[in-house]
Design a protein around this nucleic acid. Sequence first.
DNA 1: AGGTAACCGAGACGGTACGTCGAGTCTTATG
DNA 2: CATAAGACTCGACGTACCGTCTCGGTTACCT
Lengths: 204, 204, 204, 204
Amino acid sequence: MPDPTRRSERSRHAILTAAHELVGEVGYRKLTIEAIAARAGVGKQTIYRWWPSKGAVVLDAMLATVSDPADLALPDTGDVDADLRGVVHAIVAELADPTLSGTSRALMIEIQEDPGLAESMVERILGPNLAAIADRLRAAQDAGQLRRDLDLSVAVEMIVGPLYHRWLLRTAPLTPAYADTVTDLALRALAPDRLAPHGEDRLE
Amino acid sequence: MPDPTRRSERSRHAILTAAHELVGEVGYRKLTIEAIAARAGVGKQTIYRWWPSKGAVVLDAMLATVSDPADLALPDTGDVDADLRGVVHAIVAELADPTLSGTSRALMIEIQEDPGLAESMVERILGPNLAAIADRLRAAQDAGQLRRDLDLSVAVEMIVGPLYHRWLLRTAPLTPAYADTVTDLALRALAPDRLAPHGEDRLE
Amino acid sequence: MPDPTRRSERSRHAILTAAHELVGEVGYRKLTIEAIAARAGVGKQTIYRWWPSKGAVVLDAMLATVSDPADLALPDTGDVDADLRGVVHAIVAELADPTLSGTSRALMIEIQEDPGLAESMVERILGPNLAAIADRLRAAQDAGQLRRDLDLSVAVEMIVGPLYHRWLLRTAPLTPAYADTVTDLALRALAPDRLAPHGEDRLE
Amino acid sequence: MPDPTRRSERSRHAILTAAHELVGEVGYRKLTIEAIAARAGVGKQTIYRWWPSKGAVVLDAMLATVSDPADLALPDTGDVDADLRGVVHAIVAELADPTLSGTSRALMIEIQEDPGLAESMVERILGPNLAAIADRLRAAQDAGQLRRDLDLSVAVEMIVGPLYHRWLLRTAPLTPAYADTVTDLALRALAPDRLAPHGEDRLE
DNA sequence: AGGTAACCGAGACGGTACGTCGAGTCTTATG
DNA sequence: CATAAGACTCGACGTACCGTCTCGGTTACCT
C-alpha cells in the first residue's frame, strides 16, 4: 500500500517506455520484468510496487501510447454502412500491424488467466472502443435505420465478433474484404423489418 | 529422431491424462512439464522426446478426450433455427464447463504464439466443428432457406464469432440467451430477401 | 556532520532499546536496520545519521544496559582463589544467559570485521573488565601470593582465555566446574615457586 | 534429498576452488553464492543442492586445501616444551596470515549463529587439531612430565585458550613471544607437584 | 514574531543478493 | 535403445535490505 502522491513520475514514464520498446523488440513472451527494470534504470521493486503483473505494465504501456479517448468516436456522416466500414477497417489494420498485434495478442492471453487484468482491460480499452461503435449505432437507431428493439452491445458484437474470431482462432486470414462482408451481413440483421415498417419489431 | 515403433503406449497415455488433469487443476499458465512428468510417473525426457512444446501435449490431451468426429454432425430436422440453437447451446455449455473450458482456453492461448500449433488446432479441432455447422447451413441453403450467394464459412462465423468474442474477451457473460439472440440475428442476416423472393439476392 | 545538541533523546533511547530487544529475538545476523527503525518508530535516516554501522548501534545498546564501572571491581577478601571464582562464575553466568549472551556474541562477531569497532569495544567494555581482574591479581602479587615477574595482562588471559575459548569455539559446554578447574590450574601457574621460596622466581 | 552417488565431481571441485579464490579476493563478508556459482561455471541450484549455507561451502573449501590429517600430529622429541612451542608458533603464524585468518575469522562468526556449522567445524577442524595436542600431552603425562589427574582437553585449552582470546577479542597483538609465555605458564600449571613427587596429585 | 535551518517519521528510490522454480539438456541404471 | 529418475546450466522470479534521497511536520535558534 504505497503512497501514490510520492510516486516518481520519472520512473513511471521510464518503465512504460521501456516496456513498450521491449515488447516490440523481443515480444511479450520473452519480455521480463528484469529487462524492463534494467532498460528503465529502475529497481525491480519499483515495478512490483506499482503494478501487480507484467500484463498490467504492458497494458499501461499500451494505454500510454494511445491518444485521448475523444478520437475513438466514430464520425456520423448519416451513412451507417460507410461509418462502420471505417472502424472495421481500422480494427483490421491494427490487428494486422505486427507490433500492436503482438502486444494485443499477449494481453488477450493474459486475461484468459487473470480476471483482474481482464476487468481493467475491458474497462480501459475494449469497453471504450465498443462503446464508441455502440454510440454510432444508437444514432442510427434513433434515425430509424436500425431496429428499435436492439440490445446495442449485442449489435456491436455481431460486427466485431467475427473479426476477432478470425484473429484469435486463426481459422482464416483477417482481411478488409472479410470485414466488409461481415459488416454488410450484420447491418442486414440489424435493419428494421422491411415488410412491417409501421409495426413493432420484436426480437426474441 | 526417435523411433515411434518403440514408443511406450503406457507413458503416452499417462502423460496425456496427467496433462488433462493438471490443466483443469492449476490452469494452463501454471502447468509445467515437470508437473506433468511427475504426475505421469514419467521422465521429463520422455515428454521432450515426443512433443515439441507444452501446447502440443495439451492439444493431444484434448483430442484424446474428444469423441469420434461422426457425432459432430448436426441433426437436420428441417428447422434451421432449432438445429442451430442445439449447437450454440452445446458450445455455450462447453465453454462454461470449467474443465473443458480450461483446456480450450489453454489452447487458445498457445496458438496465439505458435502458428504451427494454430494450424494443427484449426485442422484437427476447430475446422471439423465449424465444417459441421457449415454443412447444416448448406442443407438449409439448398432448401432455399438461406441466401444463395453466401460464403458459408463467413455465415458460420456470424454465428460463432460473437460467442467466442464474449468468451475470450470477457466483456460480458456468455449465456444461452445471448446465444439465442445472436442466432436469431444471424439467421435474419442470412435469410433470403423477403421483399424480392423471386429476384436475385445479391450480397456485395 | 549533524548537530548533537539537537539530537532527539527519545529516538536515541528507542533505537537502543529496539536493537537490544531484537538482537535477543532474532540474533545478530538477522538483525536489520530496517527492523530496528520500525520497532523504534523511527526513520531509517535517524539511525544512519548517528551510527556508522549496525555493530555500533548494538555496542551502544549493550553499554546502555551495562551498569556503572564501579561495580566491576572484585572484592578483596585476601583469598585470591575465592575472589577469582566469583568473577569467573559471573562470566560463565553472563555468557550462559541467552539475552546477554546474544548481544555479546553479536559484538564478538562484528569486531571480527570492523577493527574500529573492535577498538572501542576493547576500550569501553573488555578493557575495564579485564583491568578489574588484573587489579585483584596485582593486590595478590603485592601480598606475595603470586610470582613477582608476572605480566598481569597475560595472567588475566590465562584465566579468561580458556573460558572464552569454549564459549566462542563451542568445543565443549562452558560450566562453572570448568571455570573452577581453569582457575585452579591458572593459579598454580601463577603461584611463586614453592621449592625455592627465598630465590628469585624467573619466568622467561 | 539428492542422490550423492550421482553428484558431479567436476562441479564440486569447481565450486570449492572458486570459493577459496573468492574468499581470498573479496573477503568472506562480500563473498556471495552468486559469485561462486558464476566463477565456478555452475548453476546456483547446484550449490544450494549440496550445501546448506555459505559457511558450509567455505568450510569445505578450507578443508580441501588442508592436507591429510596425519601431519597434524606433533613431533615427540621428548621435550614437551619444545614440541608445544612448535604448535603454538604454527597457530600464531596461521592466525596472522591475512588470507587464512580472514576465512577462519569468518567461520568463527558463522558458528556463532549456526549450531550445525559449529558442530561440523569442531568435528572436522578444531577437534582434530586440539586432539593432536592432547595426544602429545598424553605422552608427556605417561612419561611422568605432567600431573596424572589432568583432564587433557582442559590442559589443551589452557594453552590455546589465551591465544584465541587475543585473536578473537583483539585486546592485544598475538605474537610468538606471547605464545611462548603462555606455554611456559601453562606447563608450569600442568607439571606434577614438585614437593610431593611420590604422592597422589589431586586437582579439584 | 518570523524566518530558516536542522532533526524527525515516513517511505520511495536504485541496487544487490537472496533462495526458489522451471526450462531444456545430459547422464546413469534398468528393462 | 526407450525409459524413469534426476542432476546439471541457465535465467527469471518475487522478496528483503541496503544506504541514499525526497517529502512534510515540528522544534529551536537567529535575527
